[in-house]
Structures are given as C-alpha cells and as structure tokens.
C-alpha cells in the first residue's frame, strides 16, 4: 500500500470500487455539503469534491473536503491547474493531507471561458501530467517540485481523469499511458454513453497493459430528461452521446424520463462490469445525489466492502 486511502484498499482487494461526487456550495452554506454527503454515506467508497467546477467559484474543495472527512466520509480532493501556480497547489496538498485527506484527483480544469469569471487569468503554470508527477514526487521522493525536502511528505493516492471520447481518438490511449508514466494511481473517466467506443478504447488500454498498472473507474452520469441528453450531446465538449440514447429518452413520457435515465445508467453499468479493465464506477449524479444509492443498489454493488 502506498497510502492509507480507502479507495486504494478497495481497489487492491480486487472488488469493484464505487465513487461519487459532491459539488461544494456557492457560498458558505456548509449544510448543503453535509446534506449531500449524508446521502452518500455507506453507498460509495470515496467522494470527489470538485474544485471550482466549470470555472464557477465555489467553496474550495479543500475546505469542503475537510467537512466530509469530519463526517467520516472519504473525500477525493479535486484540484485544477487553472487557478493556482505550483506553490499554491503544493501548499494546499500538504494542508489537505494534514486534515486527513489522502486521495486526490489531478486535473487541468475547464477553461474560464465557460464559467462566471471569463475575464480571469488562466494560470496553467503546469499541466495535469506535470501535476501528477509533482504529487508523486512529493509522496515517493519526499521533495517539493523545486527539489527541497518535505518535512512529513503527504501520502496522496493520486487520481486523474481520462476522456476516452475526445479527439484525436487515436491519442486517447497514448495520453492515458503518459498519465500512467507520470505516476497516476487510478483513473476516473468522462461519463460513458457510447459504450461501443468506450470498449474500443479499453481494448487499446488493455492491449498496452495499462489497466494492470492503474485501475480505471468508468464514469457514469444518469440523465434526468431527454433535454439533458440532447444538451450533453450537442453542447458539452468532449461528450459522446449516441443518437439512439437521445431517442430512447425522448421516446418515453416526460414524467418517466428520469426513471428511464436511471434504467439506462444501470444497464450501462451491468455491461461495463463485464468489460476487461473496468475496476469500478465513478457516479457523477450532478445535483441528483439522492439517486446514487438507488443506482448502486440496482447495479448490485451494495453493500460496500469494509476495508
């Protein structure tokens, strides 16, 4: 074991891991985080806490993560390279670790163009791969990125994201390989709707043996409505939603669409369980945390193992 991370333990036990996410509030309303977190208790192994998601200001993932930790949940600290330079990032990593947060996800982050501060400077001192390298170096070599020694280095279980559907498709396995080479411990993927394409990607991943070096959690997002399906298909960059899925959602009456979305989600998970290299699921039920337990249950993944 590299770390004390519960996620690492579940994964190394060979069981399918389940993570979900929790978006911090846009303000100091800490109750909202707690309420969301409560719904995930006992349902998932760890909870991603997003960092200024979609370039909108929210409570910092570090602070929200501390609340979760206090509730005995296992937060995965998301951190983007967009907003801080390497000094700030390392400082927060140490701080978070000191608060008992031992799992994190290294991201480059959505461009400010999409958020509510489009005029903000775009830091990107380092990119996500260099970020992984940096965290790994802090843990394994006990030094800061600048080379100085760390007094009690943070032992972070390091995650990263992968989008199997973005272009150029042929680079997607190679890019994952770069992340693996940089020292990533686990991967959470973009939401998967196009299962055929995902399987194609996974074949490539397995062909290079990457799944053995780094467990991959398949990203799942239940769709609430046909409108959401259409939006994801047409408006979200890097998202691949097949037309059949949109049609299927649109084919049921409005009031039944949410139910259909859950159904699709569960069917996908059943199929993905059989895909070689899938080590678990990352369920991103955006503002729909109450459905996570239902999904996990229907997918036959309850109860969660104790490690």
């Amino acid at each position: 074991m590299k770390t004390d991370s519960v996620l690492e333990k579940v994964l190394s036990s060979g069981k399918l891991a389940v993570t979900s996410e929790c978006g911090p509030p846009r303000g100091a309303a800490v109750d909202k985080v707690k309420k969301k977190a409560e719904m995930l208790k006992g349902v998932v192994d760890a909870v991603n806490v997003t960092d200024n998601q979609t370039a909108m200001v929210r409570m910092s993932s570090f602070a929200a993560g501390v609340f979760l930790r206090q509730m005995d949940l296992h937060p995965i600290l998301q951190m983007v390279t967009r907003d801080r330079n390497r000094l700030a990032m390392q400082a927060d990593i140490i701080g978070a670790y000191a608060h008992g947060i031992n799992t994190m996800l290294c991201l480059s982050g959505d461009h400010p163009h999409f958020g509510d501060h489009p005029t903000a400077a775009n830091v990107h001192d380092i990119d996500s791969i260099q970020f992984i390298q940096m965290v790994r170096q802090m843990r394994d070599e006990g030094t800061f990125q600048g080379g100085a020694e760390i007094d009690q280095p943070p032992k972070m279980f390091i995650g990263a994201a992968a989008n199997p559907f973005a272009d150029p498709f042929e680079l997607r396995v190679a890019r994952l390989a770069k992340k693996v080479a940089a020292g990533v411990d686990f991967i959470q993927t973009q939401c998967i709707y196009n299962l055929d394409k995902f399987e194609q990607w996974m074949e490539g991943v397995c062909a290079r043996g990457l799944h053995e070096k780094c467990p991959i959690l398949a990203g799942i997002t239940p769709m609430k409505s046909a409108g959401m399906a259409r939006y994801m298909k047409n408006k979200v960059p890097g998202m691949d939603v097949p037309q059949e899925l949109v049609d299927r959602m649109a084919g049921v009456p409005k009031e039944k669409q949410a139910e259909e979305g859950i159904k699709i989600c569960v069917e996908s998970m059943q199929r993905l369980k059989e895909v070689k290299g899938v080590a678990g699921f990352h369920i991103m039920a955006i503002e729909w945390e109450q459905k996570v337990s239902e999904i996990v249950e229907k997918a036959g993944l309850l109860p969660r193992p104790t490690v």
């Binding site: 967009r82 461009h111 990107h124 791969i129 272009d167 150029p168 890097g238």
Partner: peptide, 12 residues
C-alpha cells in the same frame, strides 16, 4: 490551457 502534455478532454 497551455498544456505541454495535451490534448485535454475538450478537443473535438
């Protein structure tokens, strides 16, 4: 995003 090890997942 000035990625030196790109592309990010938004490339379409």
């Amino acid at each position: 995003k000035q990625l030196l090890n790109g592309p990010c997942g938004g490339s379409t």
